[in-house]
Structures are given as structure tokens and as C-alpha cells.
Nucleic acid binder design. Structure first.
Lengths: 373, 373
DNA sequence: TTGAAAGCGCTAACAG
DNA sequence: CTGTTAGCGCTTTCAA
């Protein structure tokens, strides 16, 4: 790569030197003889660099990169050789901006927490072999403070960076023209939008019945984000199971936990500080269940002896807390995989069912015990 | 938004009608009188839409969007009003292409598996409040088939989409001009590149000593990806501990497991099919440990009675397998957080230590038992 | 078979 | 204070 090009130390006219140590070109001040120095800047190599090196136009390089017809075989080979040698890779941004196609699918989340990362794992497995690549974008809106993060993320990425998106727990989404979106565990339950969720209602019934079967009657419920359909369904399942068992729900034992560790802690503390506190708590999800256990421990309550706790989701973390959390499993990785498959089919124009509901299951570990009377 | 603009049903000249039902504009064929129809396509709204609606130029809108000085307060307010009303959001691709600054940081991984998603969780927590957003990009190269995925991903995203990157287990990376990269668990160990890793050597010694303390002497090792420094250090730690204990390493018990479930299964099967099979296995990471347990079970071996297995990483999954896996903890989330912090500091030009090594710890669960003689 | 030129949506001089 | 202009790196007619 290091070399000298052109005339050197000529006595017969303007000296013309090109020192080539890479790609970049430094031009001499106007007063100097015509000397050009190219320095090795390990900078981003762009299509024009390839074109220049291969001695063709950028248009030709573009055709080679995209496998278009109408380029001589010899040219194709030469260009590919240069691409390889220079390590050229097309800029996603520029490519998408121009062509509106990137072969990249987006997974839009508020935050990378156990729920969304499980979906990510499932989607990541499923995407192999589809020809797409995966781009996960976090709006950074962990606290759910700014509603509409999903709309903003979508607007920033759609059209120029991704060909379609899976949105995790969206609250509001409008469908755009020519852009496919799949919602996982959405705000409104099955709407017009293609949707993946699990049977939250049946799962909540399962959880509540399990506590009832252990003899619990004063059962508290820490409900999730009130704006999520899944949270509403879990609460509804809880109430249904209680009603079916003929056990009245004490409304003072039902609190909004909010699906996050921080928000759940406050509600749990209130619940457990009650004069006649519950003997068991059905938390809206694993994170709030874990939070409840922490709060209980800090109040000197033993689990499951003094308090039984059951969660929902079965995120990996639920197995590693102490005691291991009894919970309701949602097949999160499978949900991620199904969402991705659905999105790919939608883009391909495959006719298929656009609402998928997966079953939930009771996972018994050690955080629940028989009621003591 | 629905309305009619211009002349309508005029008897005195060419009819000029604009029916405005949104943003899009449908023009009449040339032969028609001058009629323009705008139809409500819920399409991507771009800066020019905002400019047109607000009655200013795109330059002005850009200034408002980016908070530049030199715009009248009244104009700012009007433009912001329109932005809000139309739900405008700047395209990441176009923005980055032009300005080379996006306020987005990238986390580049080969695949979303337990290791990288734990890092993601840590980084996600750390990014809050920095003003950056997070974009995780999977090259889709799970099998490690195509080396150089990190270079390709970097080339596609850097410069136009992300302001800096954390690369997870990279094998080769060149530093580019004006672009900051932090490597987690890299190929070559501390090199010129800013690096986060954990004390793999000490962790491996810990693991091996634990097995030795249980009375094991025939200890097998399933080493990880040979191209990763972490794998080499773990094997070195294993050998050091064995040597220090005066126990010779049986080379037939040391095999390449490769850090993935599939690749480890074969190596584990070979190891366990040996006439004089090991009584304990130190797997290169949790995934290969879990795989080893599966293989052992399928061969009728009970864990930990017939075979002790210890892993490395302490991914969440290790707690939920049966029996729960004894392993060496790397503080993965903390590593992700440190990597992100380091990257932010690097971009901000903060002078600081660019090599961070975090401690490892033994986590005793149930997959190891005393050696039976 | 090739390349010149227009333009994707945006930003940054620079005039007015 | 505002708009005009010239690109960022790429794809895509279209003419040579």
C-alpha cells in the first residue's frame, strides 16, 4: 500500500509526486510543486473509494454490491476484489435513505430488561436463515415516563433503517403505509395490529388457584401497568378465580405494582404493613414479585413461611432469587420467535393468522407454602 | 385536516382546486384543469411536511429541531406546535448521514444469547441519563462461521448511525479515526483497544480448586472458542490450579467445547464416552456446562452423583436448569454498565483508565458433589 | 456495459 | 431572523 506514483526529482519540469500510503489524499499548498500525498487514515471506506481504486464509477460499484445485471464479468471481479481488499461495507444509513430497503428488522423496546431480552433471544434464533438482520432499539424510556416512545422510535427508524418492526408492550401505535409492525403484549389486546401475546387470563387463574389450593384466603394482588391489557387480564383472572372459589376479594389488598422493581416496592410495603396483611401475594410479574420478597424480608417476614409470593412471566431471574420464585410461565422466547416469524411473513405478503396467543403454565418453585392459620 | 383550498367551480378560468385530506399530494394528469388532491396517507412525516405546514423553510425547522440560535421565539413556537401536531420525528438515517452525530450508541453482538443480553441489561441501565440512546445490532452470525462480523457491523453503522460502539467478544477490530470503540471480552486481551473483561484466570483457578477440594482428580475441561483470550485464560487457570495441586492434567480430558450449546455437546459426548471418563468437568462457560449435563443425562449419568459439572459466567439460565449449575460468576451486567460508561467518557474526552478487569466469584449450587472412589 | 446526474431526508454554511 | 444552497453516501434512471 505504500508507494510512490508519478515523477520524482525530475530536473526538467514541475515535480509531480504521489505518495500513496493508503486511501486519503493530502494536497499540497498551491505554491508547492505538484505533490500529492495520500496518508493511511483508517477511516470509513466508502463507495467512492472503491470506485476510485477499481477505476470505475460509483454507479458500477453499486451495481456490483447489489448484484444487479449489466456489469461485465471482469468488472464484477475487479470491483469485488477491491471491496474485499479495502474492507468496504455499505453504510446502512445511506443505503436505507436512498433505497428504502435495508434487510434489517427492528425490535423496539422501552428498555432492555429481562422481559424484552428474552423476546430478543427468541427473535434472534428465529431470524437466522431469513436473510434479515436484527436491530434492537431502546428508547431509554425505562420508567414509562414518556408515553409514545414506541411512536417516536418507530418514526426515527422506519422507512430508512428498518423494513419492519416488532414493538414490545406498545401503548399506542398507528400503522403506517407500507410498513409492517407486530406488537407483543400490547396496550389494547387484539386490535387491528398483528399481535403476539400469551393467555394472561388463564395464567392468572392458574396462579390464584394454586394459592387457594394451598389454603390461602387473604390473597393480595399487585397489579401491573394499568395501561397494559396483560395487566388487566391478570387482575381479571385473579378476580375470577377468587369468585369461583367463593372467596371475596379484599379491595385493600389489591394495589398497583406497575411491573417494575422500584414501583412495586412501595405498593408491596403498603400491603405488608397492613394490620391484617395478606398471607399470600400474586404479583403482576416476576420483577414485582422479587421486589415483594425483598420488602417482606426487610420487614422480617420469612418466605414462604410468613408470606407466599407468586409471580408471572418466568424470566430467568426468577429461578436465581432466594427462595426460587414460583411463577406463571409465559413462553417468552417463543413469543419473540413467533413475532419475528409473523413480521417476516407479513413483509413477504404471506396470508396467515395475525393474532397468536400462546399458553401459560404454572412453574412451582419454593416461594409459596401452605397457609398457616 | 380535511379542507378545500383555492378556486372551486369558477366560471371565469381554469379551475384550481386543492383538496387537502392530509399530507400527500396527488396531481392531476396534464390534460385536466389544474386540480390538486391531497390524500390522507398516514405516511412518514418528514421535515418538509413540517416546513410546509408551518409556512417556513426546512432550514428553519432544522434549527428548531436542533435548538440552534437565530430563530424568532414566535417561529420556534409555531414550528414546535406543528411538529407536535404532525408527530414529526427526525429520521436517524438522514440525520446521521448529514451530521455525523446521532446521540445513539451501538452494542454490536454476533447474536442475542444469554451472555450478550446480560451485558445489554447493564448497559441499558447505565445509559439512562447520559442523553444517549442504545441500539443493539446483531450480525446474525451465531455460529461464528464468518469471522469479521464485528468489522462488518462496525462499518455499516459507524459514522452515520452511531457515535460509538461497544463490541462484544470481538476477534479483530481496527480503530477508526474519530470513532470510539470499547471491547468486552476481546480476542487478544488488553491491547490498544479500551477493554472490559473479568478475571478469567482467577475464576478458572477458583473453579478447579473447588472441584479439587471435593476430591476430584480426573477433571475434564471443555475449553471455549480458541480465538478468545477469555477461553485461553480459563484453560490456563485450570492448568495452573491442577499443577499447584500436583495433579497431572490428562490431555485426553481437555477438549474444545466452543462456548455454544451445539458445539459443546459433541465434545462432551466424546469426553464422557471415554473408558476412563472424568469424574468432574470444568466447562468453558455455562452454556457448554448445561450442554454437558444434558449429554450426561442422556448417557444415564446422574449429576452430581456420577459427574460433577461446573460452568463459567453465571448467566441467569444457570440457576434454572436442573440441577442448578454451580458456576463462576462474571458480573455481566456490571461489565455492560462499565463498558457503556467507558464509551461515554471516551467520547466526552475524559481522561481515564481504559482497561477494566472485574473480579469473578464462585457460585455454589447443586451440580457438583464429592468424588466417589 | 458504463457513467453522469438526480435525489432520499436532513444539516450547515452563507447570503439576504 | 430566514431561506437558499450544497452536499452526507448511496441507488437508480437514463443517455452515451
Amino acid at each position: 500500500m505504500l508507494g510512490i506514483d508519478g515523477e520524482f526529482c525530475s530536473r526538467f519540469g514541475p515535480v509531480s509526486i504521489v505518495i500513496d500510503i493508503g486511501f486519503e489524499t493530502l494536497r499540497k499548498p498551491a505554491a508547492w510543486p505538484s505533490i500529492v500525498i495520500r496518508v493511511a487514515f483508517p477511516q470509513r471506506v466508502k463507495m467512492s473509494d472503491v470506485a476510485r481504486t477499481a477505476g470505475v464509477s460509483v454507479a458500477t460499484v453499486s451495481k456490483v454490491v447489489n448484484g444487479r445485471y449489466g456489469v461485465a464479468q471482469a468488472t464484477v471481479e475487479r470491483v469485488q476484489q477491491v471491496i474485499h481488499q479495502l474492507g468496504y461495507e455499505a453504510s446502512l444509513g445511506a443505503q436505507g435513505l436512498r433505497s428504502h430497503r435495508t434487510n434489517v428488522l427492528g425490535i423496539l423496546v422501552a428498555e432492555f430488561e429481562p422481559f424484552s431480552t428474552e423476546l430478543l433471544k427468541g427473535a434472534s434464533k428465529e431470524v437466522a436463515g431469513t436473510g434479515y438482520q436484527l436491530l434492537a432499539y431502546s428508547s431509554g424510556d425505562g420508567g414509562g415516563t414518556s408515553i409514545g416512545w414506541e411512536r417516536r422510535s418507530l418514526a426515527r427508524l422506519s422507512g430508512t433503517l428498518i423494513d419492519g418492526a416488532v414493538i414490545v408492550t406498545p401503548t399506542v401505535v398507528e400503522t403506517k403505509q407500507d410498513f409492517h409492525v407486530v406488537a407483543v403484549d400490547p396496550h389494547t389486546g387484539p386490535s387491528g395490529l398483528p399481535t403476539i401475546d400469551s393467555d394472561n387470563f388463564a395464567g392468572a387463574v392458574l396462579a390464584t388457584n394454586y394459592l387457594l389450593s394451598l389454603g390461602h384466603r387473604r390473597i393480595g394482588h399487585l397489579s401491573g401497568r394499568p395501561d397494559l391489557e396483560s395487566a388487566r387480564l391478570r387482575e381479571a383472572g385473579f378476580r375470577r378465580a377468587m369468585a369461583d372459589a367463593g372467596v371475596p376479594v379484599d379491595e385493600s389488598l389489591v394495589r398497583i405494582g406497575g411491573f417494575r422493581v422500584e414501583s412495586a416496592a412501595g405498593a408491596a410495603a403498603e400491603l405488608l404493613a397492613l394490620p391484617d396483611r395478606p398471607t399470600a401475594v400474586f404479583a403482576g410479574n416476576d420483577l414485582s414479585a422479587i421486589s415483594t420478597m425483598d420488602v417482606a424480608r426487610s420487614m422480617g417476614l420469612a418466605i414462604p413461611d410468613d408470606l407466599s409470593v407468586i409471580g408471572f412471566d418466568n424470566v430467568p431471574e426468577s429461578a436465581s432469587v432466594s427462595p426460587p420464585l414460583t411463577t406463571i410461565m409465559q413462553p417468552l422466547q417463543q413469543m419473540g420467535a413467533e413475532a419475528l416469524r409473523l413480521l417476516v411473513d407479513l413483509i413477504a405478503g404471506v396470508e396467515r393468522d395475525t393474532h397468536i396467543r400462546l399458553p401459560t403454565e404454572l412453574v412451582v418453585r419454593s416461594s409459596c407454602g401452605p397457609a398457616r392459620d
